[in-house]
Nucleic acid binder design. Structure first.
Lengths: 117, 117
DNA sequence: TGCAGACATCGACATCTGTCGATGTTATCG
DNA sequence: CGATAACATCGACAGATGTCGATGTCTGCA
C-alpha cells in the first residue's frame, strides 16, 4: 500500500450509485475502522494533546496485549488512517488530517443547497 | 436486534475519547458497511427513485448469487441501516433516513462554527 | 388445487480476523 | 559491550465472514 492514499472516498454514498471500483477502495477503509478497539484507538489519538499519542500510553489504555494493540495500529496505519513517527525509543501515532473528514463526506448528503424538484 | 435503534453514534470520534461501550455499539454499524457489495447496495438503494429499491432489481445489478445478495441485505437490515417493506411478491429496501447522517456525524469535526482556540 | 416466481434460509466451505505468547529488532543507558 | 526498555513481528488458534448450491416459504395466477 502507498503511504499516502488520496482518499478517493470523497464522493457521497447517496446521489449517484457507487462504482464497483470505488466500493472496493472504500471498503478497506471502513473495515479498518469497524472494530471497537481500533475505533477507540483512533478516538483516543485524535483527542490527545497535539493530535498524537505514544504507543506506550495507548497500551495502558486497553486491556489487550501489547502485541494486539501493535497489530491494530498497524492495520490503521496500513489503511492510511494513522501517521507513524518514531522518536528515539518511542513511537507516536497521529490521525491523518484528511482521513476522517473524507469518511464523513462519504456519508453526508450531497448538497442541500438549492433544493430543486 | 431492535427494529429501531437510536443511532447513538452521533458523537464525533474526535474531541473526546470514545467509551468502550460506545465503540462496541458503533463498530457493528461500520462492520455492516465495510464490504464492497454492501456499500454498493446502500448506494444503489439510496440513489434509486423514491429512495428504495426492489430486491429483484438489486439482484440483477450484481454478479453475486441471489442468496448472497439476500444475505447482505439481511446484514444491513439487522444493523438498522435498511428498512424492509414487502409488497405482494416483491420486497423493497430503503435506506433508513437518519442512518447515514449519523455515521457522518461520527467522523465530522466537533464544531467548525466559531473557531475558538 | 396446482404451478411458477420472488425472496429467505440452510448447510457447507475456504478465507479472513482478533487475540495471545514468544521472539526479534532497535535505541538508550552504564 | 552488556543490560534494559519500547515496539514490531511470528506462529498458532478459535471464531467470524463471504460465497455458493439446494431447499424452504409465501404470493399471485390459472
Amino acid at each position: 500500500m502507498s503511504d499516502s492514499p488520496d482518499f478517493a472516498c470523497c464522493t457521497p454514498l447517496t446521489g449517484t450509485s457507487m462504482s464497483t471500483e470505488q466500493a472496493e477502495q472504500v471498503a478497506p477503509l471502513l473495515k479498518a475502522l469497524a472494530d471497537p478497539v481500533r475505533l477507540r484507538l483512533v478516538s483516543l489519538i485524535a483527542s490527545s494533546a497535539g493530535g498524537e499519542a505514544c504507543v506506550c500510553d495507548l497500551n495502558e489504555a486497553f486491556d489487550q496485549t501489547q502485541a494486539t494493540i501493535s497489530h491494530h495500529l498497524k492495520v490503521l496505519h496500513a489503511a492510511g488512517l494513522l501517521d507513524r513517527d518514531k522518536r528515539g525509543v518511542w513511537v507516536y501515532y497521529a490521525v491523518r488530517p484528511k482521513a476522517l473528514p473524507a469518511v464523513a463526506t462519504l456519508f453526508s448528503t450531497p448538497a442541500p443547497t438549492g433544493a430543486r424538484g
